[in-house]
Amino acid sequence: MVIGLPSDHLRKGRTMDTKAHVLEQIASNLYKGEDDVVATLVHQALDQGMAPAKILNGGLIAGMDEVGKDFKAGDLFVPEVLIAARAMHAGMDILRPLLAEGEVPSAGKYLIGTVQGDLHDIGKNLVKMMLEGAGFETIDLGTDVKPDAFVAAVREHQPQLIGMSALLTTTMTGMKATIEGLEEAGLRDTVKIMVGGAPLTAAFAEQIGADAYAPDAATAVDVARNLMGV
């Protein structure tokens, strides 16, 4: 990773005047994907006596929000988002052991998978990473997930949201089967269901009884937030 002038400047700690300032620096360095600098700054914030939850919310998540906003506006490339996510992980690795139980904020618990008969993983993974960047807790069931497996996972993890992915027109029907499976199990009303993938449309989502459709990974985050009512 390239460490430019601003971060070298930061490392010397010359601009660490106020507590608010360090959070802004964490957010802006996270945006730039400077994972080493983010880690250093998180340590500095802790040394100043700042609460871990405050560093997480005011620094890491605030930075990731900016990334998500600019990606959605078309100003960022996918790798830039992922590099920022890498920097967020660098900060999270330090904070996680220090955060008390229940202090880790979650935008929602999200169960995600590619439907039965479909082994395509890449698009689903991108959506998952974008959701994690936005503070969602994700449970990834992988690919070729049978309706029963979705139902069992809902029962076990009790998520608020389910995301189903399909790349093939031949596997899209697995989405409807999964929704029907959840209905039969009496779990349909406990979750909001989102679908996505290259051959899908909003009309198809409505037709099979899903709650929402997202055309791309950036939109998926917004759709998920809307479904959570935030």
């Binding site: 993983d121 890449i122 993974n125 990473m129």
Partner: peptide, 9 residues
């Protein structure tokens, strides 16, 4: 790489 999992990230 995880087979089928891609290189994006």
């Amino acid at each position: 790489a995880k087979p089928g999992g891609g290189f994006l990230a």
